[in-house]
Write a protein that binds this DNA or RNA. Structure first.
Lengths: 215, 215
DNA sequence: TGGTGTGAACAACTTCACAGCG
DNA sequence: CGCTGTGAAGTTGTTCACACCA
């Protein structure tokens, strides 16, 4: 009963918010702010202050009552929780417009993420070297390259029609996490982590709101 | 206090799912499938069948008991609900790598959405014409162009540092919906619809899952 | 018969309110 | 005193189970 609940269930929304907190804490640290209270941070994030405290409480007690949180310390803790105290190697599959944009944004992607290998099937692309330095491999080399380079996250930027097949191969190669930009619900085995980045769905949400004309 | 909120509250998750249903219904229609049951569709979408029926029940009775749903009819109804029976005009602000990718994907964006005007502040870009045909306007012309072209959705693809300022101008110009690709929580007045497409947050979610090593 | 539509049970998440501590 | 940490209340979303009907 008194068990330190080894893995109490953490809402995924909490993880998403931690990521957002870390973003603002980084900005605050940069500005030289030393201490911040949940109310203040909440305001910046557009979130209820109690929510922030509860989110943090899942992982420990990081604040000082009557004072607030030390910015740098809290940032460090959140990064540790999220697993950002190591660097993550990603494989990018599909070097179309979107894939290229992701590569170009690489500096924009926060430290800790790196495209260790990139793939396409287009003969016009395979073998060429990208401005960012990577050699474009053929998809056939996927499994080998993933093992050689210890890739942990697969990023799918292919057309929807090929996304499932690519996912299958990533899974086969031992990948446990996929960031999917293709507009498809990937079918994956239990335990795989898949996150979809799907702006057509977001657009549809906006269209609905505009049509209904309410909040 | 006792206000009878005329429009019963529809979960936003429901709208998101409707968008996904429509995607699969479109595929089914293309394949020539005439009728589909909630169980079948649920399987494809990775969703509970009861959830689908409940989602649809918010808007009416579209099925036939003991049979299922007529694919084409249901698709039509969902599109009507989402507001996809008209075309939507968007303004794109920021023609960097991401913005260019969005423009190039224009054909990929499902019918009904169109970039009616595009903007940047880079003198090297302003005045040039894109492969997709649009002339790149300077940001200064934002308000005018939005009015002239009846733009209804603003798409922000600028650096994070400028996103809030751009949002302000969009709001000022009368825009009611924003698709935000910048990694910032935009501060907007009540009633505005904002959807964020934020893959750094998604990556952090994956990192967390990998670190924890559980579902 | 078989699958929809739906009230009721359930589960998950958010907010409140305040005790407790620096 | 002020702000954190947290049980409890409140709210929202999901799943069940079955009546109902083509």
């Amino acid at each position: 009963m008194r068990q330190p609940m080894k893995f109490s269930k953490i809402p995924t929304a909490t993880i998403t918010r931690l990521s957002i907190y870390s973003r603002y804490l980084e900005a605050l640290a940069q500005e030289g702010v030393k201490i911040i209270a949940s109310d203040k941070l909440a305001q910046k994030c557009g979130i209820n202050p109690a929510q922030i405290r509860k989110d943090l409480a899942y992982f420990g007690e990081f604040g000082i009552r009557g004072v607030g949180y030390f910015v740098k310390e809290l940032l460090f803790e959140i990064k540790r929780i999220l697993g950002l105290n190591k660097s993550w190697k990603m494989a990018l599959i599909g070097i179309g417009n979107l894939g290229s944009a992701l590569l170009a944004h690489q500096n924009f992607i926060r430290q800790g993420y790196e495209f260790a290998a990139v793939f396409d099937v287009d003969p016009a692309k395979v073998g060429r070297r990208l401005p960012s330095g990577q050699l474009i491999h053929h998809l056939d080399e996927l499994e080998q390259a993933i093992k050689d380079k210890d890739v942990e996250i697969g990023v799918i930027a292919t057309p929807a029609s090929q996304a499932q097949a690519v996912a299958q191969r990533l899974i086969q190669a031992g990948i446990k996490a996929i960031l999917n930009f293709a507009p498809t619900q990937l079918q994956v085995p239990e335990g795989m982590a898949v996150e979809n980045v799907d702006f057509t769905v977001k657009l549809d949400n906006l269209a609905y709101h505009l049509t209904m004309g309410n909040t």
